[in-house]
């Protein structure tokens, strides 16, 4: 009994926010993970919107380029892409800087992480959004055109809000994947949640404690996200009758 109480106490000690506890490190790691995931998701959404409209309405050259983008990015494992983009891009930026007589720079892990995961997210988002746009009833777009609505306004006020109801389940998936893909950035030494957890576990040998704690944090994040997306979806589906089996 006392042994169990002692174990519980030492677990709490290990997870305390202030050193020598590692809880603060874990939370900072979580904050970094969320920041990268949010940045990558936002970038991916932007790339995906451009990609989807480009694939649907662009010229043949643009469509081919976008096909290459979505095919290649979705074919290569994300870990490999991260290694390629992180090291290759850092290296080529520095080569260029040196060639022009500047100093080498250290690219921030945050910016690199957002860029890499954003490019990956963009490829998947392109397909999610393309499908969603295609499922917008064509008559509603035609009605807007028939009333003389310019293309930009039509996309913003009619096509995008209508397709959102179809896109949100897919986008929610992408967001959850983004939150977990941030763990891949541990391989380039970025201090996100998984990397922080490994460090804490390695230093204290309390593997079970820290990986369970990290797992709970990821779970909490995804529960909150699911709740948020459910709210967004309710809002996007306003005006549509509920479909129940």
């Amino acid at each position: 009994m006392t042994a169990l109480a002692g174990a519980a106490a030492s677990t709490l000690d290990l997870l305390q926010l202030a050193p020598p506890g590692w809880g603060g490190n874990l939370l900072r790691g979580l904050a970094n993970s969320v920041l990268i995931a949010a940045g990558a998701f936002g970038l991916g959404l932007g790339l995906g919107t451009l990609g989807a409209f480009g694939k649907l309405y662009g010229g043949p050259v643009l469509r081919d380029l976008l096909a290459v983008y979505t095919t290649v990015v979705r074919a290569v494992p994300e870990l490999v892409l991260i290694l390629i983009l992180y090291y290759a891009v850092t290296d080529s930026v520095n080569q260029i800087l040196l060639a022009f007589g500047y100093e080498r720079i250290q690219i921030s892990g945050l910016a690199a992480g957002i860029a890499v995961l954003g490019v990956v997210q963009g490829a998947y988002a392109t397909e999610v959004l393309r499908g969603a746009i295609q499922s917008v009833p064509v008559g509603q777009i035609e009605a807007a055109r028939a009333m003389g609505m310019p293309p930009g306004l039509l996309a913003r006020r009619v096509t995008l809000p209508l397709m959102l109801a179809n896109a949100l389940p897919g986008l929610a998936n992408l967001w959850l994947i983004a939150t977990k893909d941030t763990a891949l950035l541990a391989v380039v030494g970025f201090a996100e949640l998984t990397q922080q957890t490994r460090q804490a576990a390695g230093a204290t040998k309390a593997y079970f404690t820290f990986f369970m704690a990290a797992g709970l944090l990821y779970l909490l994040l995804s529960i909150l996200s699911t709740w948020g997306f459910a709210r967004l979806e309710r809002r996007a589906r306003r005006g549509l009758p509920e479909v129940r089996g």
Partner: peptide, 26 residues
């Protein structure tokens, strides 16, 4: 001329067989 056709469309009220009201707006 995109602007011309938009202006002309604004002067012609079209009513469709399938109504085509925007479902996300009241």
């Amino acid at each position: 001329d995109r602007r011309q056709i938009e202006r002309i469309r604004q002067s012609l009220g079209m009513v469709f067989q399938q109504f085509n009201l925007w479902t996300h707006r009241t």
